[in-house]
Simulated assay, not measured.
Amino acid sequence: MKSKILVVGSSLKDMGGIVTVIRNIEQSNLTESYELTRVETYITGSVLARLHIFIVGLIRYLYQLFWNRPDIVHIHMSNGGSFYRKSMMVMIGKIVRVPIILHIHAASFDDFYNHNWFQKRYCQFILNRVDLLVVLSQEWKKYFSTIVPHRKIEILYNGVFKMEEQVSRTNSTPTCLFLGRLGERKGVYDLLLAIKKLKEKEVKSKFLLAGDGEITEVKQLLKDYQIEDMVEVLGWINVHEKEELLRKADMLVLPSYHEGLPMAILEAMNFSLPVISTYVGGIPELIQHGENGYLNEPGDIEGLTKSLEILIHDQNTIVTMGEKNRTLIHNQFDINMLMKELSHMYQRLILK
Results as ranks from 00 to 15, higher is better:
V239M: 15
V203F: 07
E165V: 12
K186S: 08
N158D: 08
C123P: 00
D229I: 06
D212P: 02
H150I: 12
V130A: 06
D131T: 07
I126W: 08
V218I: 10
Y143T: 00
K196M: 10
L127I: 05
N171F: 04
D212C: 02
L179H: 07
I215E: 09
Y225V: 02
G213H: 05
K196G: 04
Y225C: 07
V167F: 13
L209H: 00
E243G: 12
K219E: 13
D131Y: 02
Y189T: 07
K199F: 07
F207T: 09
G211M: 03
V160E: 01
L208S: 03
P174Y: 03
K219S: 11
G187I: 04
C176F: 12
E184K: 15
F144K: 07
D224E: 15
A194M: 03
N116P: 08
L198E: 01
V231N: 03
F207A: 08
L177C: 06
E228L: 10
S145H: 05
R181S: 11
K186I: 05
V203I: 14
K199Q: 13
I237T: 06
L192G: 02
A194W: 02
N116W: 07
K199G: 07
L192N: 01
M163T: 14
H115L: 13
L156R: 04
F112Y: 10
S137Q: 04
E202P: 04
